[in-house]
C-alpha cells in the first residue's frame, strides 16, 4: 500500500515533503497569530481545493457551486450545536450525509438528463444560489440575520466541541489536508480513479470501454461533496458566525476552485501549492499596499486579479506541473 502510494515520486521529493510536514507541525510554536491565521486559510483552501479537484481534475465535471457543500456542512453542524448542544464531530455525521445527498441530487439531475459542460456548471451555481436564498429565509438557522455560535474561550482547547485557540483549528486543517492528499492519491490509483480519468478525457470513449459513466460521475460528486462539507463544519466553528450571504456566495465557490486551478488541475500537489501561492500573493499585496499607505477598498483584490491573469497567461497548466518539471520532482505524474 505505502509502496503504491509513493510510486513515481522521487525520493528527494519525499524528503522535501516530510521536511515540510515536520515544519508545519511545529509551525504554531513560533508562528505569530497573523501567520497562523494565514496558514489556517491556506490549509482550508488546500483542503477544499483538493476536494473540488476530485470532481473537475479527476472526473472532468466542472462544479462552480462548491460553496453549497461548505454552507450545508457549516449550517448543519452549527445548528445542531446551537440548538441541541451536539458536538461538531457528531454533527459531522449529519452534515456529511446532507451534503452528499445534495451532491447526489445535482449529479442525478445532471447526469440522467445529459446536462454537461457549461450547463452543468451553471446548474451547480443555480442550486447553490437557490439554497443561499432558502437559508436567507430559514428562521431555524437565523435566516439572513445569521447564526452565531457561543464564542470560544481561548483559555483551554476543547477538541471535542472545537472550542479553542486557532492553533487547534490549524492542526485539524493540516490533518485534513494531509488526509485528503493521501485519500486522493489512493483513489487516483484505484480502479475508480482510472475510470474517472477516462471519463474526464473522453466520456464516449469511456462508455464504449465498458465504464458505467453515470455511476462513476455520481461517485465523484458525492465523495467531493462529502469531503467539502467537512471544511464547512470547520468554517462554522472557526468563525463562530454564519451568514448565507457569505458561506453560500458564488465568490466562495470561486475561491475554492482557484487553488487547484492555479496550482495545476488534476494534480495532487496542485491544490496545496496553489493555496500557498494565492494566499501568499494576497498577503504580500496587502502588506505592500499598507507600506505605501494605500487604503482604498478593492486595491488588494485588484492586484489579485492581475496576478491571476498573469498565472493564466504565463503558466496555463498550473504552477505545480511547471515547478515539477523545472526541479525534476516527479518521475511520472500521478
Amino acid at each position: 500500500m505505502i509502496g503504491r502510494l509513493t510510486e513515481g515520486i522521487r525520493p528527494r521529493t519525499l524528503i522535501i515533503l516530510a521536511a515540510l510536514l515536520a515544519f508545519f507541525i511545529v509551525a504554531p510554536l513560533f508562528a505569530s497569530d497573523y501567520l497562523l491565521t494565514m496558514l489556517i486559510l491556506i490549509f482550508y483552501f488546500a483542503y477544499t481545493g483538493q476536494s473540488w479537484n476530485i470532481m473537475m481534475g479527476f472526473a472532468g465535471q466542472l462544479s462552480l457551486g462548491h460553496a453549497l457543500y461548505v454552507g450545508l456542512g457549516a449550517y448543519a453542524a452549527a445548528a445542531l450545536f446551537v440548538h441541541f448542544g451536539m458536538a461538531p464531530w457528531l454533527g459531522l455525521a449529519v452534515a456529511v450525509p446532507i451534503s452528499a445527498a445534495a451532491g447526489a441530487f445535482i449529479g442525478f439531475l445532471a447526469f440522467r438528463f445529459r446536462v454537461a459542460g457549461v450547463y452543468f456548471a451553471v446548474l451547480t451555481i443555480a442550486v447553490a444560489e437557490f439554497t443561499r436564498i432558502g437559508f436567507d429565509h430559514l428562521q431555524w438557522t437565523g435566516a439572513s440575520a445569521g447564526l452565531f455560535l457561543p464564542v470560544a474561550q481561548y483559555a483551554h482547547n476543547d477538541l471535542w466541541t472545537l472550542r479553542g485557540h486557532p492553533a487547534m483549528f490549524y492542526y485539524v486543517l493540516l490533518a485534513a489536508t494531509a488526509f485528503a492528499f493521501i485519500a486522493c492519491r489512493a483513489m487516483l490509483q484505484s480502479r475508480m480513479g482510472y475510470f474517472w480519468l477516462a471519463i474526464r478525457e473522453d466520456e464516449e470513449a469511456a462508455r464504449s470501454a465498458g465504464i458505467d459513466t453515470f455511476r462513476y460521475k455520481m461517485l465523484a460528486v458525492v465523495i467531493s461533496a462529502a469531503m467539502t462539507s467537512f471544511a464547512g463544519v470547520i468554517y462554522a466553528f472557526y468563525y463562530n458566525n454564519l451568514f448565507p450571504e457569505q458561506v453560500f456566495n458564488i465568490s466562495q465557490s470561486i475561491l475554492i476552485i482557484l487553488a487547484p486551478m492555479v496550482g495545476g488541475l488534476g494534480t495532487l500537489f496542485g491544490p496545496i501549492l496553489g493555496a500557498f501561492v494565492i494566499e501568499t500573493v494576497a498577503e504580500a499585496m496587502r502588506t505592500l499596499l499598507q507600506w505605501f499607505g494605500v487604503d482604498l477598498p478593492g486595491t488588494n483584490q485588484l492586484f489579485f486579479g492581475v496576478v491571476l491573469l498573469f498565472v493564466v497567461l504565463a503558466v496555463p497548466e498550473g504552477v505545480w506541473p511547471w515547478l515539477s518539471k523545472r526541479m525534476g520532482l516527479m518521475e511520472r505524474e500521478p
Partner: peptide, 13 residues
C-alpha cells in the same frame, strides 16, 4: 484515445 493519459494507462482502463 484518452489523450492526456499514458499509453499504458489507456489500455489499463
Amino acid at each position: 484515445p484518452f489523450p492526456a493519459l499514458k499509453v499504458e494507462d489507456n489500455v489499463t482502463i
